[in-house]
């Protein structure tokens, strides 16, 4: 697959893939998600930004039900999220997730990390899964380290492996929960490059991040969250140059100053 194949893609006009309808969630007394309505279309890249504690990570994790919600519905490709069990596992296989702390399987090699899902969940033959894993590892630039263990890789390398691991499942949508927040500055770029490439290939992505540069280059839409609410929603261009709400102006004023 090359970027060219996706040339005719018009962002955000594909059919709805992830739909959150009137979603509420509480952590005890704390109302972390307030009446969230969000539709992510096929091929769209949605970047969620906002101050810490705004509920953006919770929103991201709710989409594959790593967090349960208290009210409202979430549907994926027209199918409501099932309860815990076999069906939920099947659904999660369709959703790639990249975590802030990488969460590579510490006792497995890089190659095994990438092939575990395809072999155990997708029931692919081992040789086929390994061939595909090598392809993906090459694509994220880790091809020659396939036999190592996660602890032997740098943070940036681990995160790229984590992306390859998620891609190996051929997900319909990829969720990124602050993928670069635990990385040194020079490693951030190598991970963002992989993500930009992914976006250009037409992957549907929901990205929680503080990387404004990535939002500007890759996002079709920026969602600004504060206090559990979606305060503002716009194209990156509009959002960064002409924020509407005071909350967003305040936030951008703080982060863009340095």
């Amino acid at each position: 697959m090359t970027a060219l194949e996706n040339e005719e893609r018009t962002p955000g006009t594909g059919e709805p893939l992830v739909v959150l309808d009137k979603v509420d969630k509480w952590f005890g007394q704390l109302h972390v998600l307030r009446d969230i309505n969000l539709t992510v279309h096929r091929g769209e890249v949605v970047v969620v930004i906002g101050p810490s504690g705004s509920g953006k990570s919770t929103l991201c994790r709710a989409i594959n039900r790593l967090e349960t919600i208290d009210k409202g519905t979430i549907t994926l490709d027209g199918q409501p999220l099932p309860q815990e069990g076999k069906e939920l596992a099947n659904l999660r296989a369709e959703v790639g997730m990249v975590f802030q702390s990488f969460n590579l399987f510490a006792h497995k090699t890089i190659l095994e990390n990438v092939t575990l899902g395809p072999i155990k969940v997708r029931k692919k033959p081992k040789a086929e899964a390994e061939a595909r894993a090598h392809e993906l590892l090459d694509r994220v630039g880790i091809g020659h380290q396939a036999a190592k263990y996660p602890a032997q890789l740098s943070g940036g390398q681990q995160q790229r492996v984590a992306i390859a691991r998620a891609l190996a499942m051929e997900p319909k949508v990829m969720l990124f929960d602050e993928p670069t927040s635990a990385l040194d500055p020079e490693m951030i770029k190598e991970v963002l490059d992989v993500m930009v490439d992914l976006a250009e290939r037409g992957m549907t992505m929901v990205v929680v991040t503080h990387e404004m540069g990535f939002a500007r280059t890759a996002a079709d839409r920026v969602l600004f969250m504060a206090d559990g609410q979606v305060v503002e929603e716009n194209t990156p261009e509009q959002f960064f140059t002409n924020p509407q709400s005071d909350r967003a102006k305040d936030f951008l004023g703080k982060i863009l100053k340095h």
Binding site: N64, F99, N103, L116
Partner: peptide, 8 residues
């Protein structure tokens, strides 16, 4: 969490 996320 990562193991659940790949659908196990």
């Amino acid at each position: 969490e990562a193991a659940r996320a790949i659908g196990l």
